[in-house]
Write a protein that binds this DNA or RNA. Structure first.
Length: 934
RNA sequence: GCGUCUGUGGCGUAAUUGGUAGCCGCGCCAGACUUAGGAUCUGGUGCCGCGAGGCGUGGGGGUUCGAGUCCCCCCAGGCGCACCA
């Protein structure tokens, strides 16, 4: 009987669905295990063959853990809000809700065909009001919290209010946008609006005028991780810096904890390193420089306090508040002109163009150590957003300062003995100090320490840790996102009552973004808040007494994805994000599989979000994802045909160098093992209908290249097509067989037949051609048991180490061996297919039932391998196929190599195994292992 | 520039974790069964050499009885950060 994968897969998919086989609940009697995939954006293109890679791996692991007796949570959902879904909707001219719904349906169809063990009863969609109610709710909690550095946690804002009433800002050690100082009396004297403004400085979700990445083409601001090389990650549009009033999340308050937390989780070193870089901790000193003839003092941040004696000028960022204060009347026109010129340039231009530019402010700062007067300049090489937006320049030991000094002919004072600064600066933190007063003679690290102490003792400044990580900009001028639960009264934002959540996204007539930055929600007619009646009403009712405008921005894409893993634990709870019971049972994600592209976005925001909820006592684990694996990307493998220029003749790869040709992409679905299907090609496009071919060995061989998988390269392979042709089990096995999970690799169908053949051979052990079941109850031989237990051991080890490619190989070896032995015995096959069930669930289920089992293979127990069979079998069959024998031999330490060899040769073990064969070579190892090559 | 990972047959990869390379699969070669085969089965297949044998894990050095694996230097590629003071 043929292996009919189509019938088998449909049959069992239906069975699992009807039996609710994948429904999970809290089971206190079993240990839990939470396996999570990064949920997909349902884009219009559907899934290609690369998407399921991680899903297959996590599915195998989930099924394995279940066989091992764990209660496994393995949910799936959709990240349906945010730019991608909306851009697609705009391109196709349809309402995002409709296209999103369609896309989700298509994704679901594709996912279902692959036979995943997702518990779909727990599905979440970020665009579902019942879901985003909790996104809005979390935002309200953040608005009502501040971050206390002393306690290292978020605290209710009400505590801060109490404190202000009692002692003002004295002794405050909390995260804030800017340092402020006021007394209790001053606080009490403030108006409501002033108090709100003051509190805004401390809230974890706050509204502020900040420099943002504004993208005119997308009509929205973007977070730092959404901007790559100065252009938008989506679409690649230019991004400019603008000052706008935006909602922000005070992620920076958590910088140190985000850094420390990395030590406690099992992620790859490279991913942790990426996050460390992104957080960018640097220890240094913040120092005050007095300005000659002015009361203004400028604060700067430096990691090289030791180089204070080499400061020959100061530089301000163009956006710095100091610029205005320090520009002298004579210099004002020049400075103005410079600021305008800088303003016009986009971020990309500023980055790409490394030409030195700048302007003198006219002011002089006073070096607190040497008392020297040093000029203050403005230049765009200094960033407004880092440190204080002002630096002390040490051209001898900083390459950027050096370039600036050279360009404007400013003095350069070397501070390290023997360094040569005639051509370039000496940036290394090594050597002995000179020209540096009390620091002379010290090594650089010593000098850094001494200088910091000195700065503190003299009250010139203080030691400070700076982070590169900035607060996340949380508003988007877009339609397709979560609305804020916010209304504006007297120009200040207020939260809607939690009881009124969710605030549903209103209908609008025009949802396209605008280039000027007015959010599409401005078109909404029913978008005002009646404070008295506690409900959303028509905008026409806005009267400044009871009815107020609602926030027009929406939340960014990462809002909905930041806590979805928590929601899966308790997805239908309408009274809490998650019940205490569910949270305490499921705790956090044990295994998270997803792409590395979220390293500085989602994976930072989620950790922040989770830590915030942890601080509030709402979740019991501080880190959301215990172990994380990044599956590699599947690239496309494009195929080419070679057209002889000026003709309609195509020449095969091996002959193309004899002609003058142009390569053309061909659809990879018309090519098999790099051989072109000529009929399909002729039918592909009208202009190829009369194409002629120059073949080699009767075949047209195509060229190939690895490229991104995309429609324009004609190299997109759909999982559905593979399932149609080979079945889901083959697809699953093949995707794993392709190579190590974490490695990026091109999709290459060339080897898929081998995997499919393996399944057919396994089938062949159960059924003969006529469809008779061959399986017998005969006892298994030692050799057969060896094969089985070897495989179980190997596969178990491999799954635990996420080495799925080698476990597939192990299965193939086993089936080859059993085929060779013509072994169709239940005692061997039943454990084998249970072991295989995580990989090829449909086949396993079918064969498990064929053996007469009534229950699902899902509820079987993963077989335990027995070392006994391996040992016994080894004794009986000690010589492996490559002719080596290994055993232990005790011998005195002082023996020479020759003596040991002699002993090994005459040893009874050797004699037993030799069996008349000649010994080629004896290899002796001090570890008492002897290898004998026959 | 800084950080990080990787480099093995024609190709994807494997190697009991320092044990004497190339498992498994693709491809290729030969054979069997077939009207036929893009089906199935069997055998072979790192390179050089007729052969004995020699050479082989990017290159060079080192540690070791023994190195694909550990250490140092270089080369190549991938990823991350990049005027972050």
């Amino acid at each position: 009987m043929e292996y009919n994968f189509k019938d088998i897969e449909q049959k069992w998919q239906r069975y699992w669905k009807e039996h609710g086989s994948y429904k999970t609940g809290i089971r206190p009697d079993r240990p839990k295990y939470y396996v999570l995939d990064m949920f997909p954006y349902p884009s219009g293109a559907g899934l290609h063959v690369g998407h399921p890679l991680g899903y297959i791996a996590s599915d195998i692991y989930s099924r394995y853990k279940r066989l091992k007796g764990f209660n496994v949570l393995h949910p799936m959902g959709y990240d349906a809000y945010g730019l991608p879904a909306e851009q697609y909707a705009i391109q196709t001219g349809q309402h995002p809700a409709i296209t999103t719904e369609q896309n989700i349906r298509r994704y679901r169809e594709q996912l279902d065909k692959i036979g995943f063990s997702f518990d779909w009863s727990r599905e979440v969609r970020t665009s579902d009001p019942a879901y985003y109610k909790w996104t809005q709710w979390a935002f309200i909690q953040m608005f009502n919290s501040y971050y206390c550095h002393d306690r290292q946690q978020a605290r209710p804002i009400a505590e801060l209010v109490q404190r202000f009433e009692a002692q003002g800002s004295a002794g405050l050690n909390v995260a804030c946008t800017e340092e402020r100082s006021f007394s209790a009396a001053q606080w009490k004297a403030m108006t409501e609006r002033e108090r709100q403004e003051t509190l805004m400085n401390y809230r974890i979700a706050y509204l502020a005028d900040t420099m943002v990445n504004w993208c005119p083409q997308l009509g929205t601001v973007l977070a730092n991780d959404e901007v790559v090389n100065g252009v938008s990650e989506r679409g690649g549009y230019p991004v400019e810096q603008r000052k706008m009033r935006q909602w922000c999340l005070r992620v920076s308050a958590y910088a140190q904890r985000l850094l420390d937390g990395l030590e406690t989780i099992d992620w790859t070193d490279s991913l942790k390193e990426t996050q460390r870089n992104w957080i960018g901790r640097s220890e240094g000193a913040e120092m005050r420089f007095k300005i000659k003839g002015s009361d203004v003092e400028m604060n700067i941040f430096t990691t090289r306090a030791d180089t204070l004696f080499g400061v020959t000028f100061m530089v301000l960022a163009p956006e710095s508040d100091y610029v205005n204060a320090l520009t002298t009347p004579e210099q004002r026109p020049a400075v103005q002109a410079y600021l305008e010129a800088t303003k016009k340039r986009t971020e990309r231009e500023r980055q790409a163009d490394k030409k030195v530019s700048g302007v003198f402010t006219g002011s002089y700062a006073i070096n607190p150590l040497s008392g020297q007067e040093i000029p203050v300049w403005v230049s765009d090489y200094v960033l407004a957003g880092y440190g204080t937006g002002a630096i002390m320049a040490v051209p001898a030991h900083d390459s950027r300062d050096y370039a600036f000094a050279r360009h404007f002919n400013l003095p350069i004072i070397p501070l390290i003995e023997g360094c040569d600064v005639s051509e370039e600066s000496f940036d290394a933190k090594e050597g002995i100090m000179m020209n540096s007063g009390f620091l002379n003679g010290l090594t650089v690290p010593e000098a850094i320490r001494r200088a910091k102490e000195y700065v503190r003792e003299q009250g010139i400044g203080h030691v400070k840790v700076n982070y590169r990580l900035r607060d996340a900009i949380f508003s988007r001028q877009r339609y397709w996102g979560e609305p804020f639960p916010v209304y504006y009264k007297d120009g200040m934002p207020y939260m809607l009552p939690e009881a009124c959540l969710p605030v549903e996204l209103p209908e609008v007539t025009k949802f396209q973004p605008t280039a000027t930055g007015e959010p599409p929600l401005g078109h909404a007619t029913r978008w005002a808040w009646n404070e008295k009646e506690q409900k959303i009403v028509d905008t026409s009712e806005i009267d400044h007494v009871n009815v107020f405008p609602l926030e027009l921005n929406t939340m960014p894409g990462f809002a909905g994805s930041s806590a979805y893993y928590i929601r899966y634990m308790d997805p239908h709870n309408d009274r809490a994000l998650v019940s205490r019971e569910a949270d305490e049972y499921w705790r956090n994600v044990d295994l998270y599989i997803g792409g590395t592209e979220h390293a500085t976005g989602h994976l930072i925001y989620s950790r922040f979000w989770n830590k915030f909820l942890f601080d509030l006592g709402l979740v019991c684990e501080e880190e959301p994802f215990k172990k994380l694996i990044n599956q590699g990307m599947i690239q496309g493998r494009s195929n080419f045909v070679y057209r002889i220029n000026g003709t309609n003749t195509f020449v095969s790869l091996g002959l193309k160098d004899q002609y003058d040709t142009t390569p053309l992409h061909v659809d990879v679905n018309m090519v098999s093992n790099d051989v072109l299907d000529l009929d399909k090609f002729k039918a592909w496009r009208p202009e190829f209908a009369n194409a002629e071919f120059l073949l080699e060995d009767g075949k047209y061989v195509c060229g190939w290249a690895v490229e991104k998988m995309s429609k324009s390269m004609f190299n997109v392979v759909n999982p559905d097509d593979i399932v149609e042709r080979y079945g889901a089990d083959t697809l699953r096995l093949y995707e794993m067989f392709l190579g190590p999970l974490e490695q990026s690799k091109p999709w290459d169908t060339n080897g898929i037949d081998g995997v499919h053949r393996f399944l057919k051979r396994l089938w062949g052990l159960f059924y003969d051609r006529e469809g008779n079941l061959l399986v017998s109850d005969e006892p298994a031989t030692a050799e057969e048991l060896k094969s089985l237990h070897k495989t179980i051991k190997k596969v178990e080890y491999d799954i635990e180490h996420f080495s799925f490619n080698t476990s597939v190989s192990a299965f193939m070896i086993c089936v080859n061996e059993l085929s060779g032995l013509k072994c169709s015995k239940r005692a061997v096959l039943e454990p084998l297919i249970i072991t295989l069930a995580p990989f090829a669930p449909h086949m396993a289920e079918e064969l498990y039932h064929a053996l007469g089992n009534e229950t699902s293979v899902l509820d079987a127990a993963f077989p335990a391998y027995d070392e006994k069979y391996l040992v016994e079998a080894t004794k009986k069959y000690p010589i492996s196929f490559n002719g080596k024998v290994r055993f232990s031999l005790d011998f005195p330490a002082g023996w020479s190599k020759e003596e040991v060899e002699q002993a090994a040769l005459t040893h009874e073990q050797t004699q037993k195994y030799l069996d008349g064969k000649a010994v080629k070579k004896v290899i002796v190892v001090p570890g008492k292992i002897v290898n004998i090559v026959l």
